[in-house]
């Protein structure tokens, strides 16, 4: 079935089943491997991307239900044009194994778009669905706080 899908500003014509989860379209069809498979049932958050600016679990969103432009970690920022959250992640040296981090950063980006000045409780509530097996949570929290400050200041 034909679909038009806009990912990171590029529109793709795809002929795929409507049920295929967005995650596998990104990873296996388009070769955008930043979003990660962790659970397949929207229980770990490693696959978090934005659809219409909202954080969604790409593993649980069928292609047929994608109702707007998609942004992945590759579209948030890259070398030479890092997003404030990515800068803050580097400043705090937040990642360990790094596997969940694209999901963490995309979830955090959606939080800051909604709430530019989150409390620690707001951060915990927003980030609770994104698991980190390395337990990098304290640096993730600190990086979000700093990025929020930088984004408000700038």
């Amino acid at each position: 079935m034909p679909f038009r899908l806009t990912v990171n500003g590029t529109t793709e014509e795809l002929d795929l089943p409507a049920e295929i989860p967005l995650l596998w379209v990104l990873r296996d069809v388009l070769g955008l491997t930043g979003a990660k498979y962790g659970c397949g049932i929207a229980a770990c958050g490693s696959c978090t991307v934005h659809v219409n600016g909202r954080a969604v679990r790409a593993c649980g969103m069928p292609l047929g239900e994608v109702d707007g432009p998609v942004t992945t970690i590759e579209g948030l920022g890259g070398p030479g044009r890092l997003a404030p959250l990515q800068e803050a992640w580097i400043a705090h040296q937040a990642a360990q194994c790094g596997y969940c981090q694209p999901g963490q950063i995309m979830q955090a980006a959606a939080l800051l778009a909604d709430n530019p000045d989150p409390s620690d409780a707001d951060i915990d509530a927003a980030m609770d669905g994104v698991l980190c097996r390395c337990g990098a949570y304290s640096r993730i929290r600190a990086a979000i706080r700093d990025a929020a400050g930088a984004m408000r200041g700038g």
Binding site: A35, G77, G98, I105
Partner: peptide, 17 residues
């Protein structure tokens, strides 16, 4: 600064998958 940090926050780090 960790040598793997930049790639891990941009999605560029290559895991086996």
């Amino acid at each position: 600064p960790r040598t793997d940090m930049r790639d891990k926050v941009t999605g560029a780090a290559v895991f086996a998958c």
